[in-house]
Amino acid sequence: MTFDVFLILNSIPTMIEGLGITLKLLFLSTVIGLALAVVTLLMRLSGHWLLTWPAMFYIYIFRGTPILVQIFIIYHGLPQFEFIREGVLWPLLREPFGCCVVALSLNAGAYVSEILRGGVLGVDRGLHEAGKALGLSTPHRFIYITTPIAVRLAIPAYSNDFISMLKATALASTVTLMDMTGVARTIVAKTFAPYEIFIAAAIVYLCFTWTFQRGFGLLERYMSRYVKKDA
């Protein structure tokens, strides 16, 4: 086997062409996913079965199936229905980019709402009671006491999910999107050099993972600035 180190270096600039789509997918779907997650979390915490059950059902469906299957169902499956093709959502679902944002957002929403729930449940009961004693209302207690602590508790798990999302965007290449993996696969099909090209792609992904990891690390430190450090 011949191994061409220069091919790795030379293919990285071409790979960067797909970076725009990868990052757009990542940021759009994590932002929308976070919004969905907050709504789902509030539904789950509401304590009313009419809100809790749909939220649990949604989480179960999207955590219980592979993202690839979700992308395929949304991309290939939905257009089988006439009312989808005639409907208002078609301009979005017609484009592979739209389908991937929908799939990844729904997926992120399900996972992140569980992460946030973990954070909320981790908040000490005593703090609630203290808030109550001070005469804070339930919404006030949630916003001023629970949220800041829950966010701090959830950050390590959330950063994990964020990095998973970065890697999940690679699945977009299966529905014709030219994200970084899509570009890589096209180069491979032309050069017949899978090792070099995919190693180049892996290097670019690793650079971004490192950046995000650092970013979340700093955020975690910032959020924990009032926490007493155990020696």
Partner: peptide
């Protein structure tokens, strides 16, 4: 140009107007 892996998806997306 939109690039596909499988030919079946090609026919499907032609039908769907993608």
């Amino acid at each position: 140009v939109v690039r596909y892996d499988a030919i079946e998806a090609l026919y499907l997306d032609l039908q769907n107007g993608r």
